[in-house]
Amino acid sequence: MNVIQETINWLVSPQTWSADGHDMIARSLEHLQYSAIAVAFAAVLAIPAGWFMGHTRRFSGVIVGITGAARALPTLGLVTLFGLLLGIGLVPPMIALVILAIPSILASTYSGISAIDTSVLDAARAQGFTTRQLIARVHLPLGLAMIVGGLRSAFIQVMSTAILAAYVGAGGLGRFIFLGINTQHTAMLLGASVWIMVLVIVVDVLFGTIQRFATPAGVRRLNATTSAQSSAG
C-alpha cells in the first residue's frame, strides 16, 4: 500500500474523527479558535493604528519597515523564544501568532484608508461631517473591503502557522504533524497537512465572499467602469 492510499485511509477512518480517537473535529475547532483569537487581537491593535496612519497619511515608512521586518521574522523562533520566557501553554504561541498577523492587517488598513480620494474626504468635511461621522460613513464603508482583505491574508497565514502551538504543547491540528513526525507516521503527518489545507481554502473562500459583500455597490460599479475603460484603452 502506498503512502497516498494510507493517507486517504487515515483521513476517512472513523478513528481519526471520533471523540475517543484522535478527535480531529475538536482539534480543528481548537485550531480555528486559536487563529481567530490571534487575528482578533492583532486587529484590535492594527486597525486603529493603520487607520491613524492612513488618515494622517504619515508614517508610511513605518508600514514598509514593519511589513518588511515581519517577513524576515522566523515564527518558530518567536514561539521558542516566548516559550522559554513564559513557559509551556497557549500564551507564547498566541503572542507569536498575533505578531505574525499584525503586518498584513496594518498594511491593508493603511492602504484602504489612504486610497480614499482626498476630494471625497475634503467635501465630506466641508459639508459638515464630524470626525466620528467621517469614520463611520466614509472611512469604514470605503475602506472595509481592503481591511477584510488584510484580515483574510492574516487569518490564512495564522492558520498555517498555528500548528506551532502544538510545539509548546498547546494543541490544535499541529499535534498530528508533530506526532506524525515523531512516530514516523507518514499517513498521519500528510493527512493532517491536507486537512489544514482544506480548512485554509474554505476560510479563504469564506473571507473572499465577505470581502465582496463589503465592497459598496457604487464602488463595485466604479471598479467595473475603470477596468472596462482600461481594457478598452
Binding site: V120, D122, G128, T130, P216, V219
Partner: peptide
Amino acid sequence: PVQLRRKIGYVMQHAGLLPHKT
C-alpha cells in the same frame, strides 16, 4: 465649525461625491 459648514454650501472642482452613495 461643523455647524457653520452645514449652513454654507461648498462646491469643488472634483465634485467629491461619496462614491458609495446614490
